[in-house]
């Protein structure tokens, strides 16, 4: 990094040193740089040396939002705008990979992309952003910040393409319990305009897409019946598209032999391979008067046998059946 001269800058004094409470013992270096930074900011100097200074501070405290915002203002102000932003994108990539759980770095990148695209005359390919996001998700497949950025990018530029979905598929293939990937999958399914068809001037989900998605989910449940992510996804789809939850009775029974006649005769416990199947079954039973008794029995099994930590919740659901 080029050495700049800052000695001309008037540094406003930092904190009152009488205050001991939570006073951070900064290094001399940091104190000096922060002093220069305050001086530069107070006169709104947008310069190369100001830019260099923000980097020094960010390297020590990546969450310094004030400095990030100032850096953004410098970049926005600069001449040869597009070149600078492209350099900035390269620079911030490393900062992101070093601080993947930091709000500021990801948001800064979002500001840069908006800036670049809004003023750019050349066609910048925003899909290049996926390379960085993929890289960070391969490191930590549930990093909330990476997913937030991916969601924003996809939505902002309408990138509901197959490449996006195939990345999700690869993540789910390596870990079918990755709920972040399931959540993103839901987002793609619901928001991708290609998944809809026009009928009677109303936009409705394409039946083939829906069937394919339900099949995918059922396969995922088969792989790991106790995985709540896939059950939540399945129920989520049913609710979103107003499908009849009773259609899931067969699937639920597959993972809980609740209706096996021998069981009630011998008063045995049903064999269950998924608590979530039993829960869904209870919900289906609750919807009809003729099966309310079964629902109560299922909730009782959940409360006393299969899922005792939620005993209060199962009792609550069960009691609401008694009263109605």
């Amino acid at each position: 990094m080029e050495a700049y001269n800052y000695t001309d800058i008037q540094c406003p004094p930092p904190e009152s040193s009488e205050i001991e409470l939570c006073r951070i013992l900064y290094s001399e270096d940091y104190l000096t740089n922060m002093g220069y930074m305050r001086g530069i900011m107070s006169k709104n100097e947008y310069s190369e040396r100001a830019l260099a200074l923000t980097e020094k501070i960010i390297n020590v405290c990546a969450a310094h939002y004030t400095v990030w915002e100032y850096r953004y203002n410098i970049i926005k102000d600069g001449s040869n705008h597009n070149k600078i932003i492209k350099d900035e994108l390269i620079w911030s990539e490393n900062i992101i990979l070093e601080n993947p759980k930091n709000y500021q770095v990801w948001h800064y990148r979002q500001l840069l992309i908006i800036e670049l695209v809004s003023k750019s005359s050349d066609d910048y390919n925003v899909e290049k952003e996926f390379e960085l996001i993929d890289k960070s998700l391969i490191e930590d497949s549930k990093n909330y910040h990476s997913w937030t950025y991916r969601t924003w990018l996809t939505k902002h530029f309408k990138l509901y393409n197959d490449k996006n979905l195939s990345f999700i598929n690869s993540l789910l293939k390596s870990d079918i319990r990755n709920n972040s990937a399931w959540n993103f999958r839901f987002f793609l399914l619901v928001n991708n305009p290609e998944n809809y068809i026009e009928q009677d001037r109303k936009s409705i989900i394409n039946g083939l897409v829906l069937q394919k998605e339900l099949k995918f989910t059922e396969n995922a449940i088969e792989l790991a019946p106790q995985n709540q992510s896939s059950w939540n996804y399945l129920i989520g789809i049913y609710e979103k598209f107003n499908l009849d939850i009773n259609n899931l009775k067969g699937l639920s029974l597959k993972y809980s032999n609740f209706e096996d006649d021998k069981i009630s005769e011998l008063e045995m416990q049903p064999i269950i391979s998924s608590v979530h199947a039993l829960e869904l079954l209870a919900r289906i039973y609750s919807s009809s008067k003729t099966t309310v008794d079964k629902a109560i029995r299922a909730y009782d099994l959940l409360a006393t046998k299969y899922d005792p930590i939620r005993v209060n919740y199962w009792k609550y659901l069960s009691s609401s059946l008694n009263t109605t």
Binding site: L21, C22, I24, L25, Y30, C61, A63, Y65
Partner: peptide
């Protein structure tokens, strides 16, 4: 924490009100 904090806390320089 009522005494001065070691330099590692510089990472939380922008979160001082939170530490308090």
């Amino acid at each position: 924490a009522l005494k001065p904090l070691n330099p590692a806390f510089t990472k939380l320089d922008a979160s001082q009100t939170w530490i308090v």
